[in-house]
Simulated assay, not measured.
Amino acid sequence: MSVIIPTFNRADWISGCIDSVLNQTMQPDEIIVVDDGSDDKTAELLKQYPTVKTHFQKNKGPSSARNLGAEKATGEWLAFLDSDDQWTPEKLQKQHDYLCQNPTLKVVYTDEIWIRNGRRVNQKKKHQKHGGSIYRHCLPLCIISPSSILIEKKLFFNLGCFDENLPACEDYDLWLRLALREKIGFLDEPLIVKNGGHVDQLSRQWGLDKYRVIALEKILDDPDLQGENRHKTLLEVIKRCQILILGYTKHGNLEEANKFKQKITRWQSEIDCRI
């Protein structure tokens, strides 16, 4: 089992992240940190962990960092962990036990504890997690945190890894491809701590729906997407386009708004033909 931690200028968080792995009741075979071009004290802090395998690259984004870590991994299973998150001590042990009890599964994720600006907050109903065939649950939002997943390495590469062309929503994109093809195990226990509210989080930015539209259009090009799953995906891509049209119109960017109007015309025509 290989743990992969991508990081970029997270000197305030990286030690707590690594310590949460070192405190696991079941230790992984290796811990790999990919420093994605940090210019803070990250490299200096990493020297305090001689057993951690560190790789440095010029800044290319989290997808590239995670993929590089996966390429370097020697384990048959990959556990990703964002550098501003932590694991509870039994996270890996419980996932290992779950997979032993469900040997046909190739992936399992867990529930989460959310911390925002230092305070614990409750997840909303829309963030409810699911196991099994969860493709339709993955359409409205990204319900799987990268920090919670344990996935067979062979499957990860067969899926095509994280899309390095996406600066955001790369996890949403990968989980759509995963959920379309595989049943996904879910441990209904909060085994990771997700820290949010800091200013460098991409999830705080407006306009991320444009990357969700890219992910949805990619999956619509997949020949395995058929029937009701395809219909639900068409409805979702239209919904996301409508949100972007409102936003771009409000900000006076009519050129971008028109691009998404054209997309709606294209995908609505497919729905109309299916009726």
Rank of each mutant, 00 (worst) to 15 (best):
T51Q: 12
V21K: 07
Q24Y: 05
K126I: 08
S15Q: 13
Q123S: 11
N258R: 12
C17K: 05
H231P: 00
V193A: 01
L178A: 10
V199E: 15
K259P: 02
D221G: 08
G118E: 09
Q86M: 11
D82C: 03
K53A: 07
K53I: 04
Y248C: 04
Q201Y: 11
H127C: 04
K259Q: 15
S20K: 05
T54S: 10
R66L: 11
S38P: 09
F162Q: 02
P190T: 07
N102R: 07
D29P: 00
Y135G: 08
E112P: 03
L176D: 03
K239P: 00
H198P: 00
V52C: 02
C241Y: 03
I214E: 02
R120L: 03
T233G: 03
L150S: 14
D222Y: 01
L208T: 05
V3S: 04
D85W: 01
I243D: 12
F80C: 07
A43S: 12
D171T: 06
L178Q: 04
K124G: 15
V121I: 15
H198C: 08
I184P: 08
S20F: 09
D111L: 03
A70L: 05
I245Q: 15
D39G: 05
D97A: 11
N258C: 08
F80E: 01
S147C: 06
L254P: 02
K154C: 03
T104S: 15
E256M: 14
T104L: 09
S64F: 06
K153M: 07
I5L: 02
F162R: 02
V33Y: 07
S64C: 04
W13E: 15
L180M: 09
C100E: 14
R266A: 12
D19S: 11
G61H: 01
E71R: 10
Q128P: 00
I271P: 11
I18W: 04
G132T: 08
D163W: 02
A215C: 05
N67E: 09
G131V: 00
S63M: 01
R212G: 00
K72P: 00
F260L: 06
L208G: 10
K124A: 14
R274P: 00
L180V: 08
Q86L: 10
N117K: 13
H251D: 15
Q242S: 15
S20D: 09
R136V: 12
H198K: 06
S20A: 10
L191N: 05
T88Q: 14
K153Q: 14
L166W: 02
Q268C: 02
A65S: 13
D85Q: 06
L216I: 01
D85H: 11
E90R: 06
G118R: 07
Q86H: 06
E270S: 11
L254I: 11
G69Y: 00
P103T: 03
H231C: 05
Y135A: 08
Q201W: 10
T104A: 13
R116M: 06
V33H: 10
K53R: 11
D188S: 13
C100D: 12
